[in-house]
Design a protein around this nucleic acid. Structure first.
Lengths: 232, 232
DNA sequence: TCCCTCGAAAGGTATCATCAATATTCGGAA
DNA sequence: TTCCGAATATTGATGATACCTTTCGAGGGA
């Protein structure tokens, strides 16, 4: 996707193996093993390992080798880690925790957006809500998803808080994951459309309390939808 | 702190230069320049660069060089990035955004802890609140800080959500940063002690609503304290 | 204007010396 | 003989170099 280059295939493979539990915490790997297994040079393997180390998935010690760290120490906010976990056997669990995170962050981000967004952004958010309504009522799922992602992205970006804004990829992945794994009602329920409208209106009018409440309502619906689909 | 490996000093220096704006977005560096500037080998420089790339601080392209990415693309949840920014000229801004993040996450984490924590954890949280009271009333700042960090850490870990638990380092850094830069009332105000107690009681009793409210109150006080200290 | 060549810089490979931590072995004392 | 501590060997990461390959941007020529 982003990188048409290098050892990213090695990284992807190893990262998935670790996040999916093929290599459990405490397992010890060595560079020699790995470079032979993937058929790459030592340098490439070392750099891939450094990236995994930066994600806190592994820890490299002299004489010992490369030890896999326990899950609580991972950088679970790293986009690649999130993608690996969403693609792996813990997808359901990851979806749950990410949705809880959204429930915590997005209402506050909406309130902040109602306070801080510029005039153009307020208008753009309203536009997106309108487009969601149109595509949703027509049952055009892909277009709907696209606008949905854009909507939440813009709210997060307009919050004036880069910690919130940095979660746009996370939210995008969750939304895409939901629709592409059949966890999304089709066509989108009218209630959801109305709630998005409410958020947009509240942000436009600068009503922080209403924005927070509407976004909270929206996500409460999302969570209950996820709760009712227990298996992956 | 962790490993006295050579590339870590290089990494720290470069990371601080980028996050503090010495190298602005779009600036182009080359490996040759950097390895000469720091007097290290290409191997070391490449591995440091890979780590910066994993943090999304830079992007490396053939023929072009190493391009500094704009701030919105950074992995601002990476512990090192947070530390660099807290140590740099944007400390005040970073403290504000992190505190907003805490306001979003910690109340929900407290509610989740009230729902999910095990019996031992509930007791331990209450203990920590008690110790905070003792050390706080005695004016023993360092010990107070230690228990404060432990308290919030344990609440986050007991939430049963690894996305929340992964923020323990962040919260720890914020708390340490606050006391060590004189943003903390000394001795701690009695109100704060009482609110911590309330959180602990609510978690112990499994009262999710009360836990969320108490934690919210606690953090509202924190934010107003920060707001009143505008400069770094 | 378009194409083509050239070269700069990263990507990748290979090999070496070094260093540190662990495992093993050896020696001496009880 | 047994046990314990110190010397030693082994192992695997770390750091440094030398040397290709690949890509792609810029500049020059048709």
């Amino acid at each position: 996707m982003a990188a048409p280059v290098l050892h990213s295939s090695v990284l992807d493979r190893l990262g998935m193996d670790i996040t999916s539990g093929v290599h459990a915490a405490g397992d010890v790997l060595t560079l020699d093993q790995l470079q032979q297994r993937f058929g790459v040079s030592r340098t490439v393997m070392r750099e891939a390992m450094r990236i995994l180390e930066a994600m806190n998935l592994v820890h490299s010690r002299r004489r010992v080798g490369i030890v896999v760290r326990p899950m609580p120490e991972w950088n679970v906010y790293d986009a690649r880690v999130i993608r690996w976990r969403l693609d792996g056997p813990y997808r359901a669990e990851q979806l749950r925790t990410l949705t809880e995170l959204r429930m915590a962050v997005e209402p506050m981000a909406a309130a902040a957006a109602a306070r801080n967004a510029g005039p153009a952004e307020r208008g753009h958010i309203a536009d997106l809500a309108q487009r969601m309504r149109e595509t949703g009522e027509d049952g055009r799922l892909e277009a709907f998803l696209e606008h949905d992602v854009a909507f939440h992205t813009l709210v997060l970006r307009s919050s004036g808080n880069e910690m919130f804004a940095a979660l746009t990829d996370v939210v995008g992945e969750v939304l895409k994951g939901r629709t592409h794994h059949g966890l999304m009602p089709s066509p989108p329920v009218p209630v959801a459309l109305a709630t998005h409208d409410e958020v947009a209106r509240a942000v436009r009018d600068g009503d922080t309390g209403a924005a927070e409440l509407a976004m909270h309502t929206l996500l409460a619906e999302v969570r209950s939808a996820i709760d009712h689909v227990p298996g992956c």
